[in-house]
Amino acid sequence: MIEVTVFYYLVLSVIIFSIGAYGMLSSKNGVRLLMSIEIMLNAVNINLVAFSSFQGNLTGQVFAAFTIAIAAAEATVGLAILLALYRSFGTVNLRKISKMRW
């Protein structure tokens, strides 16, 4: 029987964070990009909750609750911008949207 220490949670959260970051940098589709942002923020939530139990106080869980709310607000505004983008460009493929140089 292996004892599950905080280290395992950290590894999990780093892996998920990296998946999210990779998704942000590589995805062409705007919706998929929003999903990658959510994955990154949720990786941090795992981190916060694991640390909360490791430290033995509830601050981390409070922080995680705030993060979830903020992630929702951010996704809302992101989707609204994406919708406006789709209406003016006719596509959500971010590679095709480059009126200005990157």
Partner: peptide, 24 residues
Amino acid sequence: NTEAAMKYFIIGALSSGIILFGMS
């Protein structure tokens, strides 16, 4: 406007995630 906002949003969200990881 929308192109600028999308680029600003992507980078802003990425930086929020990184800041949050550092804070955690």
